[in-house]
């Protein structure tokens, strides 16, 4: 099995940019079937919110899984200044959070008008007030997305501890 290629200046590879570990792993798999299996293992690994080394040994394809996990956790751990990083929020939740920004910040010239008056309020006031209710709905959906992610992660951790 090909070892995971470490992108480093010491090994002399003239890389101009840090390589995505998954792509380097796929490049290492010269044979087509291996490549397909690697893709499958990558998808499977990433679909688990939390993985550890013992699971990887059970499933085989250590290097592929390691690459997938390296990619996933590339944001965790200390940064260049010695501080701490956290996992980025999921894209789904970020997208849901973008909706209120689009609706009540960037689109101001579309709704900043007096008419039509709705419920007796000028249109701009009505629009902003309705978004004070719609924003919690958006963010509640975002909360569900984030919560399912964390509960999956902790459930996985619990089952790993049991085994």
């Amino acid at each position: 099995m090909a070892a995971l290629r470490q992108p480093s200046a010491a090994c002399g590879t003239p890389t101009t940019r840090r390589q995505n570990p998954i792509i380097s792993q796929l490049q290492n798999d010269v044979c087509a079937t291996r490549r397909i299996v690697s893709v499958w293992v990558t998808i499977r690994t990433l679909s688990y919110p939390c993985g550890d080394e013992s699971q990887m040994n059970r499933m085989g394809h250590y290097a592929t899984m390691k690459a997938a996990l390296t990619w996933r956790d590339s944001n965790a751990g200390p940064n260049l200044s010695g501080g701490f990083h956290v996992r980025r929020p999921s894209l789904g939740a970020l997208f849901l959070g973008l909706i209120p920004f689009l609706a009540i910040c960037f689109s101001v010239s579309a709704w900043d008008r007096v008419y039509p008056m709705i419920l007796g309020l000028p249109f701009n006031l009505f629009w902003l007030l309705s978004w004070t209710v719609l924003t919690p709905i958006c963010m509640w959906a975002g909360y569900r997305v984030e919560a399912s992610r964390t509960s999956k992660a902790s459930g996985r951790r619990r089952s790993a501890r049991r085994s």
Binding site: A93, P100, F101, I104, L125, L128, T132, T135
Partner: peptide, 16 residues
Amino acid sequence: LYILAYLTLSNVVAFF
């Protein structure tokens, strides 16, 4: 009216 907008949106930022 900016006040209504920012109080709502600051909570979106807080969420993350």
